[in-house]
């Protein structure tokens, strides 16, 4: 088709553009323009290369290295702080353990005191109780003796009365003897 339109009509800018400004064939294959493109491409590449290798890339590398450095520093600082925190925690734990031991001592001493007081009070109470028990026992024995005497008297009287009621003559001495014999079992 290139052959079809190579009239005198395209006296315009180039052999690759027709009179109406449209492309003839593929503009990519137009040899007239290649030199220009290659020239400007090489200029562009050289400019970009120098900008990148002289300014941009070293700067970005420096930024990244600096950031890496500050990250490393921060990590080291964090490590220090962590160690410090560990120390503080250890000290705290030690203080806590000391306080606990002291408290245990105090508790043990208090327990001993209390036990001594308790023992003394307990012994005193025991003595009092024993005393009271002895007194009570004595009183009970007295009461029991009293009661025995009463029983004897009642039995003698009852026996005498029974004998009288049966029509016999009460002999006091015989009744006493019989009652005593009976009570003795």
């Amino acid at each position: 088709m290139a052959s079809e339109t190579t009239d005198a009509a395209n006296a315009a800018a180039s052999a690759c553009v027709d009179a109406g400004g449209g492309a003839i064939g593929m503009p990519q294959l137009c040899a007239d323009w290649m030199g220009n493109q290659i020239f400007w491409l090489v200029v562009t590449l050289v400019v970009i290369f120098f900008i990148l290798s002289r300014v941009a890339l070293p700067r970005i590398a420096a930024i990244l290295a600096e950031r890496q450095g500050s990250i490393t520093n921060d990590l080291a600082a964090a490590e220090d702080l962590k160690v410090k925190a560990q120390d503080a925690e250890d000290a705290y734990n030690k203080a806590l353990a000391d306080a606990r031991a002291k408290a245990n001592e105090i508790i043990a001493a208090a327990k001993l005191d209390i036990k001594a007081d308790y023992d003394a009070a307990s012994a005193k109470a025991d003595a009092q109780i024993a005393e009271k028990t002895a007194e009570s026992e004595k009183a009970i024995a007295a009461i029991r003796a009293g009661a025995m005497e009463s029983v004897e008297a009642v039995a003698r009287d009852t026996a005498g009365e029974l004998v009288v009621a049966m029509g016999a003559k009460a002999d006091a001495a015989a009744i006493d003897k019989a009652v005593a014999a009976r009570l003795k079992g």
Binding site: A12, A13, S14, C16, V17, G21, G22, A23, G25, M26, P27, Q28, C30, D32, W33, G35, N36, Q37, F39
Partner: peptide, 20 residues
């Protein structure tokens, strides 16, 4: 005109496209 967008033309004026 799908190919017209690829035409190389001088930025100033209408002259031919030289090397520079």
């Amino acid at each position: 005109h799908p190919m017209d967008q690829f035409i190389v033309k001088p930025l100033f004026g209408d002259g031919p496209v030289g090397l520079f």
